[in-house]
Design a protein around this nucleic acid. Sequence first.
DNA 1: CTAAAAAACCGAAACGTTTCGGAAAACAGT
DNA 2: ACTGTTTTCCGAAACGTTTCGGTTTTTTAG
Lengths: 341, 341
Amino acid sequence: MTTIKDIAKVAGVSITTVSRALNGYSDVNEKTRKKIMQVAKDLNYSPNTLARSLVMNKSKTIGLIVSGMTEANKKDNFTFEVLSGANDCISERDYDLVLFSTTTAKQREKTYSQLCRERRVDGAIVQGMKIDDPYLKEVIESDIPCVLIDIPIESDTVGYVTTDNVLGARKAVRHLIELGHKNIAMINGHNQAYVSIKRLEGYEKSLQEEGFPVNQSWILDGSFSEEKAYEQTLVLLRNHPEVTALFCASDLMALGAIKAAKALGMDVPRNLSVIGFDDILLSSYSTPQLSTVGQNIFQLGYQAANLLIDMLEVKTKSHVCILDTELIARESTCKAQNDQD
Amino acid sequence: MTTIKDIAKVAGVSITTVSRALNGYSDVNEKTRKKIMQVAKDLNYSPNTLARSLVMNKSKTIGLIVSGMTEANKKDNFTFEVLSGANDCISERDYDLVLFSTTTAKQREKTYSQLCRERRVDGAIVQGMKIDDPYLKEVIESDIPCVLIDIPIESDTVGYVTTDNVLGARKAVRHLIELGHKNIAMINGHNQAYVSIKRLEGYEKSLQEEGFPVNQSWILDGSFSEEKAYEQTLVLLRNHPEVTALFCASDLMALGAIKAAKALGMDVPRNLSVIGFDDILLSSYSTPQLSTVGQNIFQLGYQAANLLIDMLEVKTKSHVCILDTELIARESTCKAQNDQD
DNA sequence: CTAAAAAACCGAAACGTTTCGGAAAACAGT
DNA sequence: ACTGTTTTCCGAAACGTTTCGGTTTTTTAG
C-alpha cells in the first residue's frame, strides 16, 4: 500500500508538497504537481481516509440508523427506499454511508450514539424509530447532528423530514367524500408514530369541514399491521354495517382491510371503498388495485441526507423539510351506492 | 471528546496502561483496571475507531458493493434482502457495513476498488454485478478479499455464494412434468447472469431425463424484466399454441408472462401453467398466486458476510457456499388438460 | 544590482490509538 | 539481605495524513 511518503521519495519532494499537490493547493508549481500526480498514478496510490479523518476530525461518513429491518418492513419497502434515497444523495455529495441497525436477536450491546461516536460519523439519519424509543432520546441528546424521519423534533443539531400527513389524509378523505360517501371509518396506525397522529388529524378535519360527525367507534387501531387491520376491520364491519368507506393509514393495513371485507362476503369497492396511504409496490399488484395517497419515500431519504449534509457544511437556518403527497385513485374506491335513497 | 490520554491523566497512569486495561490485557492490576474503567465511564469515553484502525491496519469494516439499487430492483427485493442478511451477520460479528452503490446518474468517478482501498474496508461483498462488468474484474484483481453473490469465481482472496440453480430449475420443471405437462417452454434471464445459464441447464437436463426434446424456439430471453417477458410470452404463445406450461427464470418475468397470457384471453393456470423462480413478495399477492421455487435471499446475504469474515479471520479452505431452494406450489400451476387424448 | 514581493517548498507537530521492549515494584526462596 | 521471578507498569515509536509557520528560491520593481 503506497503512501504519500513513497510518492515524496520518488518525486524528490517533501511530503508536505505531495499533500498540497494532491489536494489542489495553489502554492505548488504546476510542473511539480504534474510530476507528483504522475508518480501517484504510477504507484497506484490511494489516500488513506482513516488517517485523513483522524487529523481533520471529520470522516465524511454519515450513519443511517434504522430500527427494524425486520420481516414486517419487507412488505412496504420503506426502509429500503429511504436507504436508497439517502445513499443516492450521500454519494452524490461525496460522503459514505454506514449502516447501523439492530435486527439481531442478540441486541448489540452498544447504543446507537456510542456507535456513531466510535465510528466518528459526521452525522446520522434516524429512521423507523418509535416516538418513545429510549434510544431516540439518547441520539438527539448527544451532540451528533442528526435528522429524523417522521419525528418532528428540531434543535440546533437535529432536524427532520416528513410528509405532509394531514394534507395527505385530507386528500384521501375528500376523495371518498367526493364519491358520495358519508360514513367513513378509519383504521389508524399505532400512536407511537407521529404519522398516525397527523393522519388522524387530517381525517377528523375533513369530516368536520363537511359537517360530518366524528364517530370514535369508527376509528380503530391497526398498528400498521396487515393482520391487525384485518381483525379490526372484521369487527368494524360487523358492528357498523352503515360504514361504506374506509381510510387506512397505510396500504398494508388497507390490504388487510380488503381481505376482511372479502372474508365477510363484501365486494371492494362495490360494498366498501377502501383507500390506503403510502403507495407501496403491492398496491398496484393487488386485486383490486388499491387507491391510495402516495408519498415519495425515496425522496424522504434523499432529502434527509441532503438536509443533514447542509447542516454539516453550510450553517442553514431551517432544519425541516416537508414533502408532498399525491392522490392515486385506482380500483378500490368508487361511487357510493345510494341504496337507501 | 475524551481520549485515552485524558483517562490516563485523571487515573494517574500511563496511556499504555489505559489502553491495555481497556482492551483486557492481563498485565494490569485488577484494582487499577477497575479504576480506569470507572474513569472511562465517568468521562463518557468512546474509543476512536479511526485511530485504532489506522495503527492496527484493519478497520473492522466491510463494504457492500451493489450495482443498481434502481427502480427495477424495487420489485424483487433482492438487493434489500441481501443487505439485510449481510448486515445481520456483520453486526453479529461486530463489524460495520458501509454501502457502495452507484445508482446516481452522475456516475461516481472512483471505481469500487478505489473506494474500498480508500475507506480501508477489510473485505467486500459484491452483489448485482453482471458477469462482464468491467468493475467486477477490477475488484477481484485487487487484493481486497471479497465474496461475490451469484458469480462463481474462487481464488485465494475471492469466494462466492449462490443458490443451487440447476437443482432449483429441475424442481420447477419436474413439478410441471409431474402435473402432466409435456410442452414446457422457458423464459430465461439475460445471459450476462450466471444464474440464467444454470437455470437453463436445469431446464434442459430435466427435459432430457424424460426423453422430451429441447426445443430452442421455446426458450426465450426475458432479460429478467417484467415487460420484456410479457412481450416474449406474447410471441411464444402466438407461435406455439402447443405449449401448456412455462418455466420463468424469475418471478417478475412470470408475472409478466401471466399478464401476457391474460391479454391473449388465456386463463392461468387452466390454459397455461406458469412457474417462477425466487419467491418474491409479489408472488403471494398476485392473482393467481404464483407457484415458484423459493430461494432464501436473506440467507444469501448472511452467508456471504459470514464467509467473508471467515476468510478474514480464520484461514478457511473453501470459499464457496451453495444454498438450497424450495418448491412452492401455489395457484399458477395445475394439471395439464388432456384435450387431445 | 538590490530590495521587496511573490512563489514554491519544507520540517515538525498533531490527530488517538496500539505495541514493543524494557523498567520498576512486589514477592519468593534461600 | 540477596538473588531470581513474577507482576505491574511505562516511554516512545508507529500508523498516514494535514497544516502552521517559516525558509528558500524566483520574480519583479526601482
